[in-house]
């Protein structure tokens, strides 16, 4: 069997794959955080909880209404997105004029509330979500066995990231968003309903998190704590990438997932902390983050 630095090729590729899958979720979540931050100037601490909610919505839809994975892929982000609309209208809107710290505290409270309620209902042990029938099975690529579902997650998340990037950077709607990120009042003075745009942007960013949650459901256990576990890592990813760019969020998401996967092969003890170490190094070398602009 082929080995690289004493590591079997199979194991290496396997961990790279897991790293990329994790990276896909980091990318989807940090993408949503970056879009929301750009327009609302709020770090959405509830992002992890809403990702968890997306996964739970899929599980509940399947077990109580018999809606399958593909239905959940559409419905769950929609449901969580509607919740986000309510959150923006009734909570976030009231604190835009305050110090940004309050946005963090408010969404942190929301995260605790959501997670607490679900922990109370479902406990902390995870619930299984079956892989949809169409995506079961494994492809033998010769050098690695690639589970179909994981391949799907990888392809789908890359597509979603690309589509989001395209929407924001290359379309008219995206130019409204970019302009409003720079100067919302002026954009509103041109006749664009910026308050509505803010609501929809928040809902879109949150829907991305919920979508990630649905895709994560068959891979990880559906659990109330899945959100808080990932959100802190995603914060580190965001600090590393810098909030400035959409592409930066995507690249650093996948990149750090990969680094984490590789660390699991070569130095497993550090795999849970490596992203934080990278963050510390990046902060020392380039405090604004790899793709960030000055504050």
């Amino acid at each position: 069997m082929t080995t690289i630095l004493g590591i079997p090729m199979q194991a290496l590729l396997g961990q790279i794959l897991i790293g990329l899958i994790n990276g896909a979720f980091y990318a989807l979540l940090s993408l949503g955080l970056a879009i929301i931050f750009g327009l609302l100037n709020i770090i959405n601490f509830a992002h992890g909880a809403l990702y968890m909610l997306g996964a739970f919505a899929a599980w509940l839809l399947l077990n109580y209404l018999g809606v399958n994975y593909w239905g959940a892929l559409i419905l769950s982000p929609f449901i969580v997105g509607v919740l986000a609309v309510a959150m923006e209208r009734y909570m976030l809107r009231r604190i835009y004029k305050l110090d940004h710290i309050y946005g963090l505290l408010l969404t942190f409270g929301t995260a605790l509330l959501i997670e607490g309620v679900f922990r109370n209902q479902f406990g902390v042990s995870g619930l299984a979500y079956p892989i949809p029938a169409q995506l079961q099975g494994v492809q033998n690529l010769g050098f690695i066995f690639l589970p179909n579902y994981r391949a799907w997650v990888l392809v789908a998340s890359l597509f979603i990231c690309f589509a989001t990037w395209f929407l924001i950077e290359k379309t008219r709607l995206g130019s409204y968003l970019r302009a409003a990120t720079e100067n919302p009042k002026l954009v509103q003075a041109f006749g664009i309903n910026v308050p509505l745009m803010i609501t929809l942007t928040y809902a879109f960013g949150v829907a991305l998190a919920a979508l990630a949650g649905v895709m994560a459901a068959p891979i990880y256990q559906v659990s109330p704590v899945m959100g808080s576990n990932i959100i802190i890592v995603v914060f580190a990813v965001v600090v590393i990438g810098g909030m400035g760019s959409i592409l930066g969020a995507i690249v650093s998401g996948f990149g750090l997932g990969l680094i984490e996967g590789l660390t699991k092969v070569f130095y497993p003890e550090a795999s849970s902390t490596v992203i934080f170490v990278v963050m510390a190094i990046v902060l020392l070398v380039k405090p604004t983050g790899l793709f960030g602009r000055a504050e």
């Binding site: 720079e182 509103q188 006749g191 309903n193 910026v194 308050p195």
Partner: peptide, 27 residues
Amino acid sequence: PPHKIARFGIGYVPEERGIFSSLDVTE
């Protein structure tokens, strides 16, 4: 609110010009 005022046919050029740096000239 401003966006409804603009809809009456009022065009505004602010003092600081308000050209968006993340948009090109055509955008």
